[in-house]
Amino acid sequence: MGTRDEVRHFLSTGEHDAHCRVWPGDRIERERRAHEELRQALVVEVQRRTATLAAEERLRGLDIVPLTRRKVEPMVRGLFPASEQGAVLSLLEKSVVFLTPANIAQVLLESSWLSTAWDLANLYLLSVGVELLGPEAPQLLGLSEHTTCYVSLAYFDEASPFADYLVHEAAHVFHNCKRRTVGLPETRRREWLLDIDFWKRETFAYACEAYSRVLEAGSNRQARIALAEEYAACAAPSDERVSVSKMAELVREAAAARNGWKHILARCAPPTRAVTQTSATEVTTTARRHGP
């Protein structure tokens, strides 16, 4: 297999030889050349598939920072003490990137991992209605890497009353970001912004997403409880990482609680503090929903 074959394989699958053996040079040079060529090939292919698209109008004149702050502020106010809310809000309000024709090339070239770049390419292609790169390509609406939340333009077309994947991806930042990154004091027991069980991270993000919509639409406790029941009855996230029944139960409990955010966090906390969290470089994704 030569470099052309390796490029074709990467474009259709997102996979590549970690040792980059078909490229010339020593190990460091092989990796440098391979990563550069694979990224450039990805950009060229995405641009080829979207060459006839018109300029994106939905973001024209839109200030993303206040939009993001408005969406995430209730979650931050509910999850963090007053002394920490400002620092967390300052982080999140600048964390959201909508993938557009204007920025997709730069995003693909600068993302940390090749696999992430491939996922982001497919997220973008899906959002503009273009064929994905391969049959196994994920159908994503959002993806979080470090403290950046990449969001599909489909966000502005979402019809579900309980969907808000900007909030979903922002919720993932809490377990991806260390406290010292935003200038908050850190201890051995408090290293990350929030202590969330590894196996419940998607449950936490989906619950925050649905609960944010319940709060936004429900003006009082009775209305919020009714909305939570409506959420439980409609199509739930088609994501094998979460239990539909547990999700519905958690949103119901949050809607009835005095501080639903704290209830969600408590239900998604590690069983003991001895559980070790994974690296802050973890990439998390929001799968495409197939329901209302």
Rank of each mutant, 00 (worst) to 15 (best):
H168D: 00
D164S: 01
D239P: 02
L108Y: 05
W118M: 04
G25R: 03
A170D: 10
V173M: 11
S245I: 09
Y124L: 03
V65Q: 14
F198S: 11
S238E: 12
M1N: 13
S160M: 10
D197L: 13
V7P: 01
A255V: 09
P292S: 13
E31F: 11
V214N: 02
E136L: 12
S83F: 01
A159C: 11
S152Y: 10
T203R: 09
S144Q: 14
S12L: 10
Q40N: 15
C20W: 04
L59C: 02
E158Q: 13
A223N: 09
A34G: 13
W23L: 04
A55P: 04
A228C: 02
T100N: 01
Y231P: 12
S212T: 07
N103Q: 00
L79K: 02
I264H: 05
F204E: 04
P292G: 14
E229P: 09
R30Y: 10
Q40F: 09
A205P: 03
R179H: 02
G218I: 04
P161S: 01
S112R: 15
P66C: 00
L125R: 07
T281P: 03
R70Q: 14
L109Y: 08
Q85T: 00
F198P: 10
H9Y: 15
T203L: 15
R224G: 02
E45D: 14
R289I: 10
Q277L: 12
Q85C: 02
Q47N: 12
G291V: 06
E84D: 06
I64P: 00
R267Q: 12
R258I: 07
G129W: 08
A34M: 07
T278D: 12
L42W: 08
Q47R: 13
T13D: 01
R77V: 08
V151F: 03
A257L: 07
A255S: 12
D119I: 11
L108N: 04
D195L: 06
V7H: 01
D164C: 07
A105G: 06
E249Y: 15
C208N: 03
L143N: 03
D239L: 01
C20M: 09
E56Q: 05
S144C: 13
E56L: 03
V167H: 06
P81S: 00
A205I: 06
S245C: 06
E229V: 08
R201N: 07
D119G: 09
C20K: 05
L109R: 15
L215V: 06
R49C: 06
A226F: 08
R213L: 10
